[in-house]
Design a protein around this nucleic acid. Structure first.
Length: 434
DNA sequence: TCTGGGGTCCTAGGACCC
DNA sequence: TCTGGGGTCCTAGGACCC
């Protein structure tokens, strides 16, 4: 048995913990650059706002419907997530943190009433962290996701769904007939692993509901879509095929990419941005205790705007794998100058670190072009840099090429509605007044 | 005027090996 | 006319997830 614990409208719920006045109101959280809606309260969903809808298309609802829009505050959400995950872990022996707001928990060997246990954990998360959750219980991960989806739907559409399915839903406790009714009422596109393309193809074949889908012959599913969808199909029929990833492998690539606050044409601000992105990516790389053998850089114009198009990328191999911010930045900037062309309104750029190898598996060399002691010194320099920035804040020590003001007047991100970092910065802790 | 930022896995096809 | 049977590695592209 598996459980899926999922925070409702997670980013919005995080914001509401510190601003209870937002309860009951339509609220959206915007992506970086205040571009589009990436989280919506139930009231915002009821206004017809869709996931990923551009802000400029819905901003009229601010006046018309009292919509509140907030800039993304990922520092806050990350910290709230850690707290929620540690409580959710109490449900069973092993946990897979699947995304910032979701975790799978294996219930293998757990005794007693599972529903009772899930209700208690849910109540504790609500009381201690302030985040409302849905919990789905089922024999496979795909069914647990589905159970979770049903729990949320039942909560939102109280009345049209049996109320005992709301907030905590255990598919294993239903009779075959009850399950069939629910699967007939659930669209095939809501299944984990069935996206827009496949859902469309299924609809065209007359397969509209989950019930229709599990009734398809297995070899048709495999023949037409391959082993991935066949796994999903098996899981929906109760056969576990996807294991719990409670010990996730290290990342194979690490990226830092951003859209700019305004279009950039000149090289110097672009160099600043690429230098900053490489610094961020290198920090992640060192946290994972890996080095990178290749650096990829790209820049492009907006796909949504008219005018001359530009989109280029280049991979710069390193002489040896490195986790040194200066070496990686030098490679990234070299790559940038090789693809840069003036005269374009660039909207986005980014850096990806590829060909990652663990620190412990770095190949020794026969001939060094620099002294081994120099290498050791650079490693220690990076350690010092990470420690100082960890203690005193991200940009306390930085490369000169990153610039001093994060591109405030050129490439920097637009974020005019960000809330305080309530839980991670002493100067932003909320104050209660008597 | 204004459209995010991360990731993963699988398959097909080509180059190459003996 | 007629042309084997294994493999590996790499890349590009397409699907998916949140």
């Amino acid at each position: 048995m598996y459980a899926l614990v999922d925070g409702n409208n997670f980013y919005v719920s995080c914001e509401r913990v510190f601003r209870p006045s937002l309860n009951g109101r339509p609220v959206v959280v915007l992506s970086n650059n205040d571009g589009c809606a990436i989280a919506r309260s139930n009231e915002a969903k009821a206004l017809g706002i869709t996931m990923g809808e551009p802000w400029f298309k819905i901003r009229h609802l601010e006046e018309q419907a009292g919509l509140v829009a907030l800039s993304a505050n990922f520092t806050l959400y990350g910290d709230m997530s850690d707290r929620m995950m540690s409580l959710a872990a109490g449900l069973g022996p092993t946990q897979e943190i699947y995304s910032i707001d979701e975790s799978f928990i294996s219930l293998h060997g757990v005794r007693g009433d599972l529903m009772e246990r899930a209700w208690k954990i849910r109540a504790r998360i609500h009381q201690w962290i302030g985040i409302p959750c849905g919990i789905g219980l089922a024999p496979t991960k795909t069914l647990a996701k589905l159970a979770n989806h049903i729990a949320k739907t039942a909560e939102r559409k109280a009345g049209s769904y049996p109320s005992e399915l709301a907030t905590v839903c255990n598919l294993a406790s239903l009779s075959a007939a009850e399950l069939a009714v629910i699967l007939q009422a659930t669209e095939v596109g809501t299944v984990w692993g069935i996206g827009r393309q496949i859902a469309q193809q299924l609809q065209a074949m007359g397969v509209h509901t989950v019930h229709d889908f599990v009734a398809l012959p297995g070899d048709v599913v495999r023949g037409k879509w391959g082993v991935v969808l066949e796994r999903t199909w098996r899981e929906l029929r109760g056969e576990p095929c996807i294991e719990l990833a409670d010990n996730p492998p290290p990342k194979q690539q690490i990226a830092c990419t951003r859209s700019f606050g305004q279009p950039v044409s000149d090289l110097p601000p672009l160099q600043e941005a690429i230098s900053e992105f490489t610094t961020r990516a290198a920090e992640k790389l060192r946290r994972q205790k890996h080095r990178s053998g290749q650096v990829m850089v790209f820049a492009r114009t907006s796909p949504f705007r008219d005018g001359p198009r530009f989109s280029k990328s280049v991979v710069v191999p390193l002489a040896r794998p490195s986790a040194d911010t200066t070496a990686l930045t030098a490679a990234a900037l070299k790559g940038l100058s090789s693809i840069y062309q003036p005269g374009y309104q660039l909207a986005k750029a980014g850096v990806m670190l590829l060909d990652l190898v663990p620190d412990s598996q770095v190949q020794c060399e026969l001939l060094w072009d620099e002294e081994p002691t120099e290498q050791r010194d650079r490693t220690r320099l990076m350690e010092a840099l990470d420690q100082v920035n960890g203690r005193f804040g991200k940009r306390t020590l930085l490369l000169g090429s990153s610039g001093m003001n994060q591109g405030a007047d050129t490439w920097g991100m637009k974020q005019v509605r960000r809330t305080p970092r309530y839980t991670t910065d002493w100067t932003e802790v909320p104050v209660a007044r008597a």
